[in-house]
Amino acid sequence: MTTPILEIRNLHARIEDREILKGVNLVIPAGEVHAVMGRNGSGKSTLSYVLAGKEDYEITEGEVLIDGEDLLAMEPAERAAAGVFLAFQYPIEIPGVATMTFLKAALNAQRKARGEGELSTPDFMRAVRQAGSDLNIDSEMLKRPLNVGFSGGEKKRAEVLQMALLQPKMCILDETDSGLDIDALQVVSRGVNALRNAGRSMLVITHYQRLLNHIVPDVVHVFSDGRIVESGDKDLALQLEAKGYADFDNAAA
């Protein structure tokens, strides 16, 4: 059997004295898209932060492998170079850092970490322009400091632009659909679908079944109180939409 892209085994994490992840088990084979749905505050973003390497959390149990390698032992930048990408639920604004400078630094840092050469400026510009036009992102926007003054939806699109540019192996999208208008949802979904291939996996966190009409998942998981309590095919999302989470609250403890 081939190694899955992502393997999470009995993952427990806490912040200060509060346990938030309470034994997450999740395996995403190469090429699959898994959706995660769950109540507000159930720990979905926490899972995404823990995977990306945010410092605030203490991992108390469990392991995470990316392509068979110990993800938790890596620094955030190493995780990115290993192929992890998190499209943030709330992308932050960083004044003083120009978007293009940032994109180039990120791309070249990852290439360097993988032992590849730097991209030339014309090649870089071409790649950004291409990714931008696919996502209807005005090139004027990219002249601003990172995310500064971007609308909510623009920020989400900019996250997907970064993802398209960096070509990660493991894409984690945390509510990328929230804040998008109907047209933008189509554009972004098209952008995400274009990235689907046999070597790339995705973890798509969302509250709305609607997104899953565009980005059709292979597996849907229900997240409740810090763990996955139910998994099924795409119809599970329809079932959730109709009935809510109540049925799953005390499931599979």
């Binding site: 410092e55 170079a81 840092a109």
Partner: peptide, 25 residues
Amino acid sequence: ADWLFYLMSRGIPRTEAETMLVRGF
């Protein structure tokens, strides 16, 4: 710390990310 994490999460090593933020400052 959140700015730093954002930059690092895109593959920019800590030292370089700090430099970028200081330059931004």
